[in-house]
Simulated scan of single mutants.
Amino acid sequence: MTEQAPLSQPQARLLRLARWLDRINLTIGQTLAWLALAMVLVTFLVVVLRYAFDLGWISLQESVTYMHATLFMLGIAYTLGRNAHVRVDIFYSQRFSPRQRAWVDLLGTLLLLIPVCLFILFVSGDYVVESWKLHEGSREAGGLPGVWLLKTLILLMPLLLLIQAVVLVLRNGLFLAGCESALTSPTPPETTGGGAHG
């Protein structure tokens, strides 16, 4: 294993920035993971109340939709940062070198991810603002009043993805500039159980 040349000050700063930004989505993603458990428990409660006691509340049912939307809309950037999205992989993993993969990731981020995020922000802004102005609530009687908060996820999702896009650009750019450690994870690998990170 060859030794890597020491990083220049600008490279070290950029790498620290990438790791700090990545930690934002990491923290959000790990926190949101608890919503999956909450969704299961609330769904179980809805079913038990409905079929065992003939009880039901629209707000309780809608809360599952809110949790589901929050988990996926805010967790998408975390998933991207962990490289866990579904990838149609013909050449990337098996035939491309690390440098070729870095180029694919860098160009994909600059030419696809960032423009799509900016487009979503551009076309969704007025829609979300109108919902905020009205403090839009559920159309169902007894539903949750925070539809305007739910629609805010449409803007938060691309913002978090843009943060992750900056991380990808910095990491892949630094890697292509010779900084081999740029693509290593800033955090210890996650464990499947409740063990501590080393």
Rank of each mutant, 00 (worst) to 15 (best):
W34I: 12
F91C: 02
L107N: 07
G29L: 01
G29E: 00
L156K: 02
S59E: 10
Y51K: 09
L176R: 00
I90N: 06
G195M: 15
D22Q: 05
R101Y: 09
V42E: 03
D89K: 10
Q9Y: 02
R95Q: 07
L176Q: 01
L15W: 00
G29W: 00
H197F: 13
L80W: 04
T191S: 12
L113I: 06
E180Y: 07
T109E: 13
S63N: 03
L170F: 11
S185P: 04
L149K: 01
L149Y: 03
L80Y: 03
W132G: 05
I120C: 06
I28W: 06
H85F: 13
L150Y: 07
M67T: 06
L110P: 05
Y78R: 06
I76N: 00
W148V: 03
K151A: 02
G81E: 05
I114G: 07
I163K: 00
T152F: 05
M39Y: 10
A33Q: 11
I76W: 02
D105H: 12
G143V: 05
M67C: 09
A177Q: 14
T184F: 01
R99L: 08
L41T: 07
L49F: 10
Y66F: 14
L150S: 01
S131P: 10
L149P: 01
R23Q: 12
F96M: 03
N83F: 05
Q11W: 01
